[in-house]
Design a protein around this nucleic acid. Sequence first.
RNA 1: CGGGCCGUAGUGUAACGGUAGCACGUGUCCUUUGGGAGGAUUUAGUCCCGGUUCAAAUCCGGGCGGCCCGACCA
Length: 418
Amino acid sequence: MRQSQLFTKTRREAPKDEVAKNAQLLIRAGYIHKEMAGVYSYLPLGLRVLNKIADIVREEMNMIGGQEVLMSALQDPNVWKITGRWDDKVVDNWFKTKLKDGGEVGLGHSQEEDLVRIMTMHASSHRDFPKAIYQIQNKFRNELRAKSGLLRGREFIMKDLYFFARSESELADFHERAIEAYLKIFERVGIGPRTFRTFASGGSFSKFSDEFQMLCEAGEDTLYLNREKKLAVNKEVYNDEVLEELGLDKSELSEEKGIEVGNIFKLGTRFSEPLGLRFKDEQGKEQPVLMGCYGIGLGRLMGAIVEALGDEKGIVWPETVAPFRAHLIDLSGGNAEVKKEADELYRELTEGGFEVLYDDRDLRAGEKFGDCDLIGIPLRVVVSEKTLTAGKFECVERKSGKTSHLSTSEMLNTLSHA
RNA sequence: CGGGCCGUAGUGUAACGGUAGCACGUGUCCUUUGGGAGGAUUUAGUCCCGGUUCAAAUCCGGGCGGCCCGACCA
């Protein structure tokens, strides 16, 4: 994409009321726009990143048998009244609104009840289970205090998967596979080394839930980490009894701050039972369906990546989620021959199947480099009189600053092998 | 929800109760062109409602909005 055509602009300063690093950098670079507290729109660059993250999540969910759906965001109170969760005292952060005829609807904050009802229409035999169903959708939660940019919003994009099992062992088996899939997702989006499975409160459903905490000073959770075992315990359940149960030794734990980038629960029959989701086993006997739910906040994940990897100059995207593979910078400064060379390289890289942001704007080098660092695309490619003379283009890695000089074919080769 | 801070051009930041100024950005022109260059010129603002006062960005009340700490976060 030609940067001269990109409708968003970068800015030197962040809005003064944005304190979180993720929001400051993402707004300055033009990835997102804040609509109101805790509510952000995704602009072209931001949407590209979000979609890349979503694709990775999709692939891993499909790999463990997930089937993607898209449920309505407007929710029917009736099904929630059956489980008792429509009550404001039970779920206190639910946006609810009224229909013209006086009836009420909810705005989706989670979808267990909705999906369970759908399942009752389609599954009733042991042959119909297990099933894993997920969606990627905007969620709404009326947080008393939205904060930290994309990390805690009132509207956010979430992948929520629900698993329906015939037995505890089937649920436990899937649970472990989901944990593996989650770790793979975090690895693929570039935060693997600093993200750990963490035992946390299971809420009203079970003793523990599994969180995935990315170590980061900006995080709102405190955890106790055993790096060797790659396991952590959230402060909310941290005590001697729990440590013993998990086989963790206090002396081997370090206190850390973390951002919760994923959270998974075993729900048992909490929702399936009241809503009548059962199956007939081989003997024709009705059995309850067991459930688990598996969430990842995609926007929060995007913000977490920025928090973790960004530096003083701007964002540093891993290749897997970067909006473009390369940022081509034309420093022709009026030299038509250089300009032609840059155009040609842009064409060749694009035709080679690589997404390139081409800074073809008529600006000085400093401004272009500044924007380039801020936007954080993994590879910077410069075309100038210097490179024209040398016969090779200058390539600089955003992350390491490592510089190399490559011909077009060498570049295509490098990009396709990275 | 408790506590604190705050609201001035698109962005950032000044102004004792007394002329709303500066920088960046935007538009135009000239010079410049490998780390945000220089000059000329242009554009645009006191969140809303009410009160005090000769006079309010400034003081008071209310509203709306934002940020931070805490609580909360199936």
